[in-house]
């Protein structure tokens, strides 16, 4: 679709005004790393582009008392350069650092990664295991939904055309036993789209008992997914090499069923084991 208008917004209020006025014709330009490619190919869904890349109130990382809030325009570089996130939310930091290239990390945003809805979106699996919430606003109302409720079975997103995702928040945890891992498989280190990604959040108590666990994957379905069957299997068990091996087999079986009939299935059902094992060994923490 051709571009008829390009408007620049400097505040959330301005964005909402334009979204209300132009409705479904609107396409938001955040980092632009995917949208510019679409525009060149004539594949942009809206003809009115709103450049929101200079909306300062949506660029922030707030480490609060109880919550951590990421403005939707926080770039991957912003996350990768944040020492608190590196130390305390390592899986999220690793995912941000693994995105594309320095140039892409300087441009690409968390909100764009979520809303674009790619199954391979790198930042989504760690946010899923953090049980992140999306803060959404329109002219008429404001709502908060869980990220895991954002992607719908029919391939669409839980976001109306007049609604803006303005920030993402998750609980700040002080529990010393929390581990957050992330691992991805690309065809090379830089500039590679994830073939498989996996993030694990776990609270490991005495005797390595898994008191709580959340696992999410990327590029293993229509959108990034929580791996509930795997979580159920691991919860309350003692984390050791044998258990990880068993869990990897279960994960592989899940993937085999999910991707059945696809050409990537034979490869992914094997490769997922290694990625999962690395993610749950919390390397680099």
């Amino acid at each position: 679709m051709g571009v008829t208008r390009v408007l620049k917004a400097y505040s959330i209020e301005e964005i909402l005004d334009v979204m209300e006025k132009y409705g479904e014709k609107v396409e938001l330009l955040a980092g632009g790393t995917d949208l510019l490619v679409d525009i060149r190919a004539g594949k942009n869904k809206g003809s009115v582009i709103i450049d929101i890349s200079d909306v300062k109130e949506m660029k922030k990382i707030e480490i609060g008392e109880d919550d951590i809030v990421l403005g939707a325009l926080t770039t991957f570089t912003d996350i990768a350069e944040n020492d608190y996130l590196k130390e305390n939310v390592t899986g999220l930091w690793k995912a941000a650092k693994s995105v594309g290239s320095p140039q892409i990390r300087n441009m690409g945003t968390v909100g764009g990664n979520i809303c674009n809805g790619s199954p391979a979106a790198d930042i989504v699996p760690p946010l899923l295991v953090l049980d992140a919430k999306l803060n959404i606003k329109s002219r008429s109302k404001q709502r908060k939904i869980k990220l895991k409720e954002f992607y719908m079975e029919n391939g669409s997103r839980n976001l109306r055309s007049d609604e803006l995702l303005y920030s993402i928040s998750f609980t700040k945890s002080r529990d010393k036993n929390i581990r957050i891992g992330f691992e991805k498989l690309g065809l090379r280190n830089a500039l590679a789209i994830s073939r498989i990604s996996c993030s694990v959040y776990a609270i490991i108590g005495e005797n390595n008992r898994i008191e709580n666990i959340r696992i999410a994957s990327g590029a293993l379905g229509k959108y990034p997914l929580r791996e509930y069957a795997l979580e159920k299997f691991l919860k309350d068990k003692n984390l050791n090499d044998g258990l990880i091996e068993e869990a990897a087999e279960i994960f592989s079986h899940e993937v085999k069923q999910r991707l059945s009939g696809r050409s990537s299935c034979p490869y992914k059902k094997e490769a997922v084991k290694g990625i999962f094992k690395k993610a749950i060994s919390f390397e680099g923490e």
């Binding site: 632009g32 892409i104 300087n106």
Partner: peptide, 29 residues
């Protein structure tokens, strides 16, 4: 033209970006 090769890299406000993936309007100011 897709942000894969980096030949179009420029420095924008101190940070490298792919100039093929930015609209000129994003460089305003």
């Amino acid at each position: 033209g897709e942000g894969e090769c980096g030949a179009c890299t420029v420095i924008l406000e101190g940070k490298t970006v792919n100039s093929c993936l930015l609209l000129a309007i994003q460089a305003h100011g």
